[in-house]
Design a protein around this nucleic acid. Structure first.
Lengths: 340, 340
DNA sequence: GACTGGCACTCGTTACAGTCGAGTGCCAGG
DNA sequence: CCTGGCACTCGACTGTAACGAGTGCCAGTC
């Protein structure tokens, strides 16, 4: 039951028209707007087949056709041509990202840029701690029994934790602690630290032993085990474009999902392959996001990937355009990170 | 043209009923649900006066009355009774806030708590840098010509900036720089630093002069001048409650406004008086938020105020309840901060 | 003088019937 | 295998009518 070339062309035309007009597309309008070289009747026959195969469907009997999730999937996999960015878009990306003063700034600019370019909701994951290395650990005394532990990662992330020491620790000991942890951990990938931290406790001189033990607990528990991921979001107002047609009338489930970091991480953070990932409609695992699609990819300095970014919008979205933009932005951000 | 007690009681009843039912309230329903002791006809006369005075209005001729922004204002100022929190709510607040590991955690928990309690959009400003003091400044060498400047404030905020030095600086000099800036700045309020930083440059030994100059520029420009404010947001999904009746059908302007940090800061960050502030409808300066109200207050350890927090929702909101919750949460957060 | 019951009036909402037309499926013929 | 023609479906739109919640006003009562 193969689909010949013309049927595929019809499907592509339906997707493109529906995405741009937001209205079910009929056979007549189709032959008018595209050079298919056949009559509406023929197109109707093709449509009937496409519908039988589950690529398109009719909202009601007397309406045109609309792509199904499966139809979009086929379109994305086999029918979409890469859409090169316009010079204006390239310029926008460069202009937007120069002059960022720190990691927060980079992430915020990136997420806003992405939202503006794609006119969708944009999501950017901060460089993952698990994929970062320790650049420096700083211990700042707050009181005699309290330290602030500050970790600076090579990706630019800075994390801090309050450490409640079991007893008073003099300033000199803090200096020693600082030296010891840095000697052992500086340069290590965060995911490799557990054994190192273990050794740190065992090798510590007796006087520093208790302090080092609590310190290592904080290190492991808060920074490694529940590896802290952070997320930035922008462009939620774009969800209201297209009236209430997308998302079957209520933004509620979408907005709820967007508030859950765990959900967003699952959507854009799973960056196993370095390629761009497209999740269409109910291909994602969250009921709240059945009516949404996600385009995401990993980014990082050079070839390594330290985090993910992407956009979320209605299944009726401009996939080729969004894929191109997500990729381009990821590449620029990677270059930016490589400079530091 | 005074309003006698009964007319005020009628206004109060209208506000309360409209807030809970979300439907225009008529004279008959009013006397049924409240012990006003008079007939519907009398209430109608009172309503006519209230309408003339601009406190209520009729959506259409054959509908009940709805409070105007002016009506809500009068209600909030003179008619609402304080609504004590339920034990369950108190418990929720305590349970939610214990176990926060750092400032980020405190802020995130707070904003989610507030959103959940009030069922509105919640906004929490991070402790303002301008109102913080420097606890410690750390300089971490990234390369010979690059430093990472990390500032730890007494409010728990940690800010970092990359510093591009004019030339290579040996490790010993970095140690000296670190000592000098900390001697001069530790303990100082951030708003008082400019003259101190100036002195720092002037007093620096010749060899450290160039490095200290760039360092001071970064300090002043990025931390003091454009005093970095941060904001956390939660509960946007609550905007969809009440169908599309609130916000005249489109969430777009609201969502757009919520993405602008500047807007949010104006709304909740202006904490001149330590009292709770209520902005109703177009009392705020943003066109996008004409249909919204904001309840906000300042928070901080002890009597000092270091930031603001609040909720945003439709003008038709439970003012007494929200005011009580915003106050209670602000108090708890203040206590939490005081412990550090 | 303030309140009340009664009554006519307004006007949005709902229900229903009828028309229109975009779009389809099917079929016979090229 | 494609095409033109045709009957059919069904949502969108329109107009009409009945309904009822709510009001304003007025005459009467305490």
């Amino acid at each position: 039951m193969g689909l010949d070339d013309r049927k595929l062309a019809v499907l592509r035309a339906i997707v493109e028209d529906y995405v741009s007009t937001q209205e079910p597309v009929g056979s007549k309008a189709l032959v008018e707007r595209h050079q298919l070289g056949v009559s509406p009747a023929t197109v109707r026959n093709d449509m009937a087949v496409l519908e039988e195969e589950g690529y398109i469907r009719q909202p009601h009997t007397s309406a045109g056709r609309v792509p199904t999730d499966r139809g979009y999937r086929l379109f994305v996999d086999r029918l979409s041509r890469v859409k090169p960015l316009s010079p204006a878009e390239r310029r926008a990306i460069e202009r937007f990202l120069v002059g960022a003063v720190d990691l927060d700034d980079v992430v915020h600019r990136t997420v806003r840029l992405l939202a503006q370019l794609t006119r969708q909701v944009a999501v950017v994951q901060y460089p993952s701690l698990a994929r970062s290395s320790v650049r420096h650990l700083e211990l700042v005394p707050i009181s005699t029994t309290r330290l602030m532990l500050v970790m600076i990662a090579d990706t630019g992330r800075v994390e801090q934790r309050l450490v409640e020491l079991p007893g008073p620790v003099p300033a000199d000991d803090v200096t020693d602690l600082r030296r010891l942890v840095n000697e052992k951990l500086a340069g290590a990938r965060l995911s490799d630290t557990p054994p190192l931290v273990q050794a740190l406790v065992e090798d510590a001189p007796p006087t520093l032993r208790p302090a080092m033990t609590t310190l290592s607990t904080v290190l492991l528990e808060t920074l490694v085990e529940r590896h802290e991921e952070r997320i930035a979001l922008a462009g939620t107002a774009n969800l209201t474009r297209g009236g209430l047609l997308d998302f079957q009338g209520s933004l509620r489930p979408i907005l709820e999902a967007l508030e859950e970091e765990v959900v967003l991480l699952k959507l854009i953070g799973e960056t196993e392959p370095s390629t761009t990932r497209v999740l269409i409609g109910d291909e994602n695992e969250f009921d709240n996001l059945r009516a949404a699609s996600v385009v995401s990819t990993g980014y990082g300095p050079g070839a390594t990937i330290v985090g993910g970014l992407g956009v979320l919008g209605p299944t009726r979205m401009d996939y080729p355009g969004n894929i191109a933009m997500v990729r381009a932005v990821a590449r620029y951000v990677g270059e930016l990170l490589a400079q530091n």
